[in-house]
Amino acid sequence: MGNVDRDFALISPNISLVDVPLPRRAKLGILASGSGSNYGAIAAAIEAGELNADIPVLICNKPRAKVLERAAKFGTKTQLLNHREFDSREALDEAILACFREHGVEWVIMAGWMRIVTDVLLKGYENRILNIHPSILPSFKGIRAIEQALAAQVKVTGCSVHFASLEVDSGEIVMQAAVPIAPNDTAETLHARIQAQEHRIFPTAIALAIRDSEQ
């Protein structure tokens, strides 16, 4: 069960990144709270010339998050907006919106962003905010989705790229991948295999959403 290719089953749509060339470079603003592995997959796809985009800025809400180190290696400019220094979710989103607009961001990519977004950001980038979630939505929304799947004893879980909405993990789905659950899986082993598929579909889903929005 540890083989990435064997684990992978694309649910929808059946398309790869090479099938979605973008006619112009899109400007992506990244939101990340943790290690930044999904940001890394996106940045690597850009660096390889596979995703026609730039990342003018990455916003992080945690001062010691590993994503800040990862961003430095890719040469991506970062902005720390510690959520603890804001009086409300709306105030944080106003600061995010201002930063992204200053840098000419066209699409917002939530790459492991552990904060609920508000109407401030959703209206500022209407239908232009994408999120990644470690389940086959609409199953297992919210936090600890992998633990939820294991507790439910399902045979298959996976990941979904979807548009952000006020209701958590409920926006329109762009792309999904399935990952089988092994009898001896733990949250850690299953997470690693799901994450491998997140890295695989996220850049493609971004390109697909951008292309479809401009047709």
Score class of each variant (00 low, 15 high):
residue 99 C to W: 06
residue 145 A to S: 06
residue 101 R to Y: 05
residue 142 G to W: 11
residue 136 I to F: 03
residue 106 E to F: 03
residue 135 S to C: 10
residue 107 W to Q: 01
residue 102 E to K: 11
residue 129 I to Y: 06
residue 132 I to C: 07
residue 106 E to H: 01
residue 137 L to N: 02
residue 107 W to M: 05
residue 118 T to A: 12
residue 114 M to R: 10
residue 138 P to A: 13
residue 130 L to W: 12
residue 139 S to H: 14
residue 132 I to G: 02
residue 130 L to G: 02
residue 125 Y to M: 06
residue 134 P to L: 08
residue 112 G to W: 03
residue 110 M to G: 00
residue 110 M to A: 03
residue 143 I to V: 15
residue 125 Y to W: 13
residue 126 E to F: 15
residue 100 F to P: 01
residue 107 W to Y: 06
residue 99 C to R: 08
residue 126 E to W: 10
residue 126 E to Q: 15
residue 129 I to V: 13
residue 124 G to I: 07
residue 124 G to S: 09
residue 145 A to R: 00
residue 109 I to S: 01
residue 121 L to E: 04
residue 124 G to M: 10
residue 116 I to M: 14
residue 133 H to T: 14
residue 129 I to L: 13
residue 138 P to N: 12
residue 117 V to N: 08
residue 138 P to D: 09
residue 107 W to P: 01
residue 123 K to G: 04
residue 113 W to L: 09
residue 108 V to L: 06
residue 107 W to S: 03
residue 105 V to E: 04
residue 123 K to S: 12
residue 139 S to A: 15
residue 140 F to C: 11
residue 134 P to G: 02
residue 115 R to V: 15
residue 131 N to M: 11
residue 134 P to R: 08
residue 111 A to V: 00
residue 114 M to L: 10
residue 140 F to P: 07
residue 143 I to H: 11
residue 110 M to P: 00
residue 133 H to D: 11
residue 130 L to S: 02
residue 116 I to G: 08
residue 106 E to N: 02
residue 102 E to G: 03
residue 139 S to Q: 14
residue 101 R to K: 14
residue 143 I to M: 15
residue 110 M to Q: 00
residue 117 V to F: 09
residue 142 G to I: 05
residue 137 L to Y: 02
residue 133 H to E: 10
residue 110 M to T: 00
residue 121 L to M: 10
residue 113 W to E: 02
residue 140 F to Q: 07
residue 140 F to I: 13
residue 142 G to F: 07
residue 113 W to M: 07
residue 135 S to F: 11
residue 140 F to K: 10
residue 135 S to R: 10
residue 117 V to K: 05
residue 106 E to L: 04
residue 145 A to I: 04
residue 145 A to P: 00
residue 128 R to V: 09
residue 110 M to I: 05
residue 136 I to N: 07
residue 133 H to M: 12
residue 132 I to D: 02
residue 141 K to Q: 15
residue 120 V to I: 10
residue 114 M to I: 11
residue 137 L to K: 04
residue 130 L to Q: 05
residue 105 V to Q: 00
residue 116 I to L: 14
residue 144 R to I: 13
residue 124 G to N: 08
residue 125 Y to I: 08
residue 142 G to N: 06
residue 136 I to T: 04
residue 120 V to F: 06
residue 140 F to A: 06
residue 128 R to F: 12
residue 141 K to G: 09
residue 115 R to I: 12
residue 105 V to D: 00
residue 109 I to D: 08
residue 114 M to V: 08
residue 141 K to F: 14
residue 130 L to H: 03
residue 127 N to F: 07
residue 117 V to G: 08
residue 104 G to E: 03
residue 131 N to V: 06
residue 115 R to G: 09
residue 128 R to D: 08
residue 134 P to D: 01
residue 129 I to W: 12
residue 108 V to S: 01
residue 135 S to M: 14
residue 139 S to N: 15
residue 131 N to H: 07
residue 123 K to M: 12
residue 123 K to A: 08
residue 137 L to T: 01
residue 134 P to F: 07
residue 115 R to Q: 12
residue 136 I to H: 11
residue 128 R to T: 06
residue 139 S to V: 11
residue 102 E to C: 03
residue 138 P to Q: 10
residue 122 L to W: 05
residue 142 G to L: 10
residue 126 E to S: 15
residue 110 M to R: 00
residue 112 G to M: 09
residue 141 K to S: 10
residue 119 D to S: 15
residue 141 K to C: 15
residue 132 I to K: 08
residue 140 F to G: 09
residue 129 I to P: 00
residue 103 H to C: 05
residue 124 G to E: 02
residue 143 I to A: 15
residue 136 I to K: 07
residue 113 W to N: 00
residue 123 K to Y: 07
residue 100 F to Y: 14
